[in-house]
Design a binder for these strands. Structure first.
Length: 479
DNA sequence: ATGTGC
């Protein structure tokens, strides 16, 4: 670990304000000693760079899955003051509202005689891979409604149940979407892609719950041991990517216009209430809503298949929850480093909201225990269901990690591994994987990620969320 | 992440 970094608690570290010139606040990150050994210097510098941005409050924060990203590190959280703060696409990421959701089923392992066949059917049912197109036909008008109303619109079009909506963060639709700031090009990319998984780390996975850590909370969330579940991890596809690209260009100009000095041009940003900042926010919120609709449509495709195959009803496959991993939001927070409770703009990039008990944003049925937090593992490692905590409200503006966190680049993974090798290893451990090509499997091998168990243990130990249940992978569809 | 790179 860099000598300037201070180890302030078991799994908490501080970056002092002299780490890079112009830091307004210290950096703070959460890592066990063993994970700290693997921390990239580049991610550390990025975390410090974020601390130079105007209006940043308390700390530039890093979750235990932190790694190098575009401008801001992935696994980064930063909250900005409404009056003096900025908004930055680099603090959200290219895949706006990349996120994850989980449905339960009434099935156990014994009910699935042929996992390979199920995985193959799922692969045929859910369009997968770069440039894949959806069976869903959207008109431009449909798309406009989707950008405004998110998952609710998908349900109105017949993809899902009314009860799904309140089980999504933001009820599946962020307020403040402004479709006039979504370019024609972005819309054109979005029309054929709603209901598609995408590629890279996106996946659809059949899992079984193999450990319950907190019986009472598990019961509240509606999950139990031995239950078969389906997890869906994807985002806003080409539409969100195009929105990010379009607005980065505008915000690079705005950075100059407003005289903001940056240590890295990838931190391009604008004051929160500037026309440029507001335009990005409106387009980002619209993209986030598209991502919720996308996950909602995929959920419907999965339910349709399971209903047919196993003779179960849609009502027996409720949504546990849906969380966003890449988004900036207006939220009210007590400012732990001082000052009155106020509205701030929280950027979470590769980080999950983890609101603790009592927050009004949490659906009534979960409000007393804290929001469900879903943390996907890598292809061969467990996923987790956690609950948000008061500790997250105090330390991280109500945030926690979002996944295992990559430790090896895609190119290096392809150099060291072949897809066949990885698929074979997984099969020996009882995990079926299906992808459009072998490279997609090699790039996502379990070895290129931190062990999800260690990452989740850090956020549990640090008190910024608490473990409720563990999910073992059985069958994976990769893009 | 992405119709994957000026």
């Amino acid at each position: 670990m860099n000598e300037k970094i201070q180890h302030i608690a078991d799994s908490e570290w501080e970056i002092p304000t002299n780490f890079v010139p112009g830091m307004r606040v210290p950096g703070r990150f959460f890592l066990s000693e063993s994970l700290a050994k693997g921390l990239e210097e580049g991610a550390l510098t990025q975390l410090a760079n974020v601390a130079t941005l105007p209006g940043i409050l308390c700390n530039s924060l890093g979750m235990p899955d932190i790694h190098w990203g575009y401008g801001f590190p992935i696994g980064g959280v930063a909250a900005f003051d409404e009056e003096t703060g900025i908004i930055s696409p680099g603090g959200v990421g290219f895949d706006i509202n990349c996120g994850v959701r989980m449905i339960t089923t009434p099935l156990t392992l014994a009910d699935i005689p042929d996992m390979k066949e199920l995985v193959e059917s799922l692969y045929e049912t859910v369009p997968t891979g770069v440039g894949s197109k959806s069976p869903v036909r959207l008109s431009q008008n449909d798309l406009s409604s989707m950008l405004t109303d998110g998952a609710k619109n998908a349900v109105e079009l017949g993809y899902g149940m009314k009860s799904d909506i309140s089980r999504c963060e933001e009820n599946g639709a962020m307020p403040g979407a402004e479709i006039e700031f979504v370019s024609k090009k972005a819309r054109q990319r979005g029309v054929p892609q709603c209901g598609t998984l995408g590629s890279g780390n996106h996946f659809l996975e059949v899992q079984v719950i193999d450990e319950i850590a907190d019986e009472a909370t598990a019961k509240t969330f509606g999950v139990a041991e031995d239950q078969i579940c389906v997890m869906i991890h994807c985002g806003s596809r080409g539409l969100g990517h195009q929105v990010c690209t379009d607005h980065l260009q505008v915000l690079e100009e705005a950075t100059k216009k407003y005289g903001i000095r940056l240590p890295d041009r990838q931190l391009a940003c604008a004051p929160l209430h500037s026309p440029e900042g507001e335009a990005y926010f409106g387009a980002m919120a619209a993209s986030a809503n598209y991502a919720w609709a996308n996950r909602q449509v995929i959920t419907h495709l999965v339910r349709e298949l399971f209903a047919k195959k196993f003779g179960i009803s849609y009502e027996e496959m409720p949504l546990v929850y849906d969380v966003a991993h890449n988004v900036a939001k207006w939220e009210e927070h007590d400012i732990s480093c001082g000052g009155p409770r106020r509205r701030v703009c929280v950027h979470r990039k590769g980080a999950t909201r983890a609101f603790g008990p009592g927050r009004k944003e949490i659906v009534q049925e979960f409000r007393d225990v804290g929001q469900p937090v879903i943390i996907p593992g890598s292809m061969g490692t467990s996923s987790y269901l956690l609950a948000g905590t008061a500790g997250a409200m105090e330390k991280t503006f109500g945030s926690t990690c979002h996944g295992a966190g990559r430790v090896q680049s895609r190119s290096s993974a392809k150099k060291n591994l072949t897809g066949d090798m990885v698929a074979h290893d997984l099969a020996r451990r009882g995990i079926i994987v299906r992808a459009p090509n072998a490279a997609a499997i090699a790039e996502e091998a379990p070895d290129v990620y931190k062990p999800s168990s260690e990452v989740v243990q850090v956020v549990h130990d640090a008190g910024i969320s608490r473990i409720v249940a563990r999910f073992r992978p059985l069958g994976v569809i990769k893009g």
